[in-house]
Simulated assay, not measured.
Amino acid sequence: MAEHFASVSRKDPASPDARHRQRMESLGIYFSSTRGESYNVSLSASELRTALSQCHDSSPGANDIPYAFLRHMSDRDFNFLLNLYNMIWHTGDFPSS
Results as ranks from 00 to 15, higher is better:
A2Q: 07
A2V: 06
A2Y: 06
A2D: 10
A2S: 05
E3K: 12
E3A: 11
H4A: 09
H4K: 04
F5H: 02
F5S: 05
A6K: 09
V8D: 02
S9T: 12
R10D: 01
R10L: 03
K11L: 05
D12V: 02
D12I: 00
D12N: 11
D12G: 04
P13I: 00
P13W: 02
P13Q: 03
A14F: 00
S15K: 02
S15G: 02
S15P: 04
P16L: 01
P16F: 00
D17A: 08
D17H: 05
A18L: 00
R19C: 00
H20G: 01
R21P: 01
Q22V: 00
R23D: 02
S26C: 03
S26N: 10
G28W: 04
G28C: 05
I29N: 14
Y30R: 15
F31M: 12
S32D: 15
S33C: 12
T34R: 13
T34D: 14
R35K: 12
R35A: 11
G36C: 08
S38Y: 07
S38C: 09
Y39K: 11
N40H: 06
V41T: 13
L43N: 04
L43T: 09
S44A: 05
A45S: 15
A45Y: 02
S46Y: 04
S46G: 03
E47V: 01
E47C: 04
L48Y: 06
L48R: 11
R49G: 01
A51P: 06
A51H: 11
A51C: 12
L52H: 08
S53L: 05
H56K: 11
H56W: 02
D57T: 10
D57K: 03
D57C: 06
S58T: 14
S59W: 07
P60L: 02
G61L: 04
G61D: 11
A62C: 08
N63P: 06
D64F: 12
I65N: 06
P66F: 05
A68D: 11
F69P: 03
R71E: 08
R71T: 03
H72P: 04
H72F: 01
H72C: 11
M73P: 10
M73Q: 15
S74Q: 13
D75A: 09
D75L: 07
D77F: 04
F78H: 08
F78E: 12
N79D: 14
F80S: 08
F80G: 06
L81G: 04
L82F: 02
L82W: 00
N83T: 09
N83H: 06
N83I: 05
L84S: 11
L84T: 15
N86G: 02
M87N: 08
I88Q: 05
I88P: 04
W89Q: 13
H90A: 13
T91E: 11
T91G: 02
G92V: 10
G92Q: 09
D93E: 15
D93K: 13
D93M: 08
S96D: 14
S96L: 12
S96V: 14
S97T: 07
